[in-house]
Amino acid sequence: MLDSGFVKTDSQPIRPVDRSRIVLADPPPPKEEWVLTPESFDGLLAWLDPNRDHAAEIYEEIRSGLIKRFRQLGCQDGEDLANETFDRVAKKLPQIAPVYKGDRAPYFFSVAYYVHKERQRKPVVKSLTNDDSSSEELPDPNPWYDNDDDDRDDELLDECLKQCLERLSHSNREMILQYYRGERNVKIKLRKELAAQMGIKVGNLRLKAQRIRVDLKKCILDCMEAKAST
């Protein structure tokens, strides 16, 4: 059975008690934010399966899977993000349907991947509110890399990198410097040697280096932001 919150026949928007979905029977003018209409929702169900009841089952299955995964990823508003995912698919459906030949369910998870990434990138300003403006794009919190003044930025970046490397533990700092030493075959050979010295596989060495790189990047971005604000 389809989520009752999704389909509404009168023109007055009603927010379901579980906040699962609002469908406007009278959609706003085109210049307004895109919202799911009964027609686009029907189109979405038809794309899932020609049999509407079966499509509704698939829809619910995908929705519950999305909510569960969003919550696993630490998103308290998993239902809102699942709805956002369906909205995006429904919006793109006219372009997707003619060209996409694969299984339908992965497509929703694929879109959910981007929804989650965007959530990670921008701060939550109005979580769990009824104000749809929370989905508006926010300015990039780290715009330093778009600055054209490359030389000055490079100096700043080098300075921050140096500071952040010094903050690493001695062994991590030495490891990361060894890891990035050399080029092409020399680099590969050095990495194999480093992994052998540390008693780990090259793959694990790479993951370890990756973790250090993630920490390093965070430190550098914080440093750049702090320096840019002073």
Partner: peptide
């Protein structure tokens, strides 16, 4: 497109 969707679904 289909391969890309499979990869992104796994990433999610």
């Amino acid at each position: 497109l289909e391969e890309q969707v499979q990869v992104e679904a796994r990433l999610f």
